[in-house]
Design a protein around this nucleic acid. Structure first.
Lengths: 222, 222
DNA sequence: ATTTATTTTTAGACAAGACTAAAATGTTTT
DNA sequence: AAAACATTTTAGTCTTGTCTAAAAATAAAT
């Protein structure tokens, strides 16, 4: 029953620390945090002191920072809210998956436990957001997603799109144009050893996808 | 196509000015604004200077303030967003009408024209919010609501609840307990001259409503 | 038309969150 | 182990939005 007063700025820092630690487990360095936040190292240091005072992180000067138990819970709740709102924006309001990030970035800061839970209920307790990213449940438990990259499929193998590792609108729009939305099926026809590009079949269409695409597209092999 | 950068604090002041001017047309005085905002006159003065710099209000020191064309448009858009979100919270998420104000107060500050319009569309372009207050359209046009107070009905007259003039949770909860939600039908049976209280029939039940209730309940006579 | 009372503004401080420039610490290199 | 480089922190300043206390302007009253 902890109220836990946090500002949007603090929450964004917590999320950033979480995100960096997710990719690169261990201590998060001030510069990495500043880069992720698009701010200066000085500002990051300032904020780390504040977060440390509030017991949301364990911070040692010059050594870096990790989330505390509470900080982790808060960051997880934030991601939960962000992704639930993304589902709402796409499934209910009809936005495309490349349009929702900025709105969700604002909506995730709306305070009130009951709102999140009612939203979750309204949406039918989705386990993944429109980009295939898992949505932690109210207790903060995560569901594992298929992390097989298209890159690893051999000719003849077929897969279903389960997510992306690059959330930039340009990539998402490109995928949409190719018919590669979440749940789409594709088959690898050929692979070029030279540049790791792959000829694939998406429905009736055949296209060549670069290594970069193969790297950033998650599939479940079928 | 004006971006019009405004902070939540600025928006709340604009709304407060709008609200006061709605009840008491004319110039809004600093003290009234400070009272509405629950802040000091000094803070209100500070903010009025800022809003004046941004051309959102016409402000003359010691004389008071009025909204500019732009300020008015902004305040209206804010009220539109607030009330649309209230409809969402009640109709879609299943909140009671006395629970939604604080959430809507946060949600109204979410930036992005397209979000509001998609939400409006999703909700089926509602013209009134869960309290019966009119929702201005995208152009800022208002719909007039029946402003007949229950107080004015004579014995024998029947009415349909169309709104409330007191939005406090206690009043709204009381009404809900009585079965007096929006659209509910009632009939005035007797009226006591002494205290303006009224015996009314709501469905099968008969109750006595005080003058205060009669004053704060809007009905359409049928 | 002064005095009195009310309203409003200024002055000076503070907290959050950001910045730049400079100092301090840590890490690598020679 | 000192020099060179990279990283991080401190110091000082800025803006937004708030506060209290004091000064100034307006309105009311004698």
């Amino acid at each position: 029953m902890n109220a836990l007063l946090t500002t949007s700025a603090e929450e964004n820092y917590l999320k950033a620390i979480f995100k960096i630690a997710e990719k690169e487990p261990g201590v998060v360095l001030t510069n990495a945090l500043a880069a992720e936040m698009g701010t200066s190292a000085a500002s990051a240091t300032d904020m780390l002191k504040r977060l440390s005072d509030k017991q949301l992180v364990a911070y040692e000067k010059y050594r870096g920072v990790t989330l505390s138990e509470t900080g982790n819970r808060l960051a997880t709740a934030l991601i939960r809210k962000h992704r639930l709102w993304e589902v709402f924006l796409v499934d209910k309001l009809g936005f495309a998956w490349d349009e929702v990030h900025d709105f969700a970035e604002q909506l995730e800061h709306i305070q009130g436990e009951t709102l999140t839970e009612r939203l979750d209920n309204f949406l039918g307790h989705p386990r993944f957001d429109p980009h295939g990213d898992p949505i932690p449940d109210a207790q903060g438990k995560w569901m594992r997603r298929t992390q097989t990259r298209l890159l690893t499929l051999s000719p003849g193998q077929r897969g279903i799109v389960t997510g992306v590792d690059d959330h930039s609108p340009t990539f998402l729009q490109y995928l949409a144009e190719l018919g590669l939305s979440l749940g789409a099926e594709l088959e690898v026809l050929e692979r070029t050893a030279y540049d790791q590009s792959a000829k694939v079949r998406i429905g009736e269409r055949e296209t060549v996808l670069s290594e970069k695409v193969g790297q950033n597209l998650f599939v479940r092999i079928i």
